[in-house]
Amino acid sequence: MRLGLVIDLDTCVGCHACATSCKEWNTSSITAPLTDYDPYGKEPSGVWFNRIRHYEVGTYPNNKTINFPMSCMHCENAECVTVCPTGASYKRPEDGIVLVDQDKCMGCNYCSWACPYGARELDRESGTMKKCTLCVDRLYDEALPVEERKPACVLACPAHARMFGDLDDPQSAVSRAVRDRGGYALMPELNYNPTNHYLPPRTRAPVPTHDLGRPSLARKVKEWVNRVIER
């Protein structure tokens, strides 16, 4: 079994709901807390397992905004695990989830150097490395209803841009999505063989703009006034 996420860049709206629900669940979960530094001050910062960045792909007018959530890829070839000197970082053989044993970590940062995806963040309070657990404490919790035995980010996503499943099983929904939509892994040239995959945006016919009429004089004046008057 190789559990992981498939993220649909076509439907992701960049709302950060996955990141906040991740923080909410995991700040009282197995590697809790996810410490915040100066949360209400001038320089708010803290530990997050999931970060969303926003990119512009292409150049105007053939451009597109891509919202890009990133968390641990739970790589097959997880070098963060092999470089760990203490054995705190490990990859579960049964489902491929990469975890950090908080009782063994000495906070040397070496695993974060080995991770190309920026999935690991040091918690300055506890002095240990923290990372996405794929909500391993939800997946096997029999007290939860079956449909909720998924990572918190997947449940929270309002656009259904996050799918969770077994990427080893060619018939699973995630494997089919990767096959049908041309899903890909990030930085394949580094050969980390990430489990998480990304689905590229669908190709759609462009919205026609050439047939728009010339603006009227009244509209031109209004636009000019809007530009000139400082709000």
Binding site: T59, N62, E121, P200
Partner: peptide
């Protein structure tokens, strides 16, 4: 290659956090 958009230019619009993170500090 980092984002998978190999055929065009890719430009960061917003890094998604207001202040530095462990990653930017390190």
């Amino acid at each position: 290659t980092a984002t998978g958009f190999n055929r065009g230019t890719v430009r960061l619009l917003d890094q998604g956090h207001t202040f530095g993170t462990f990653l930017t500090r390190e």
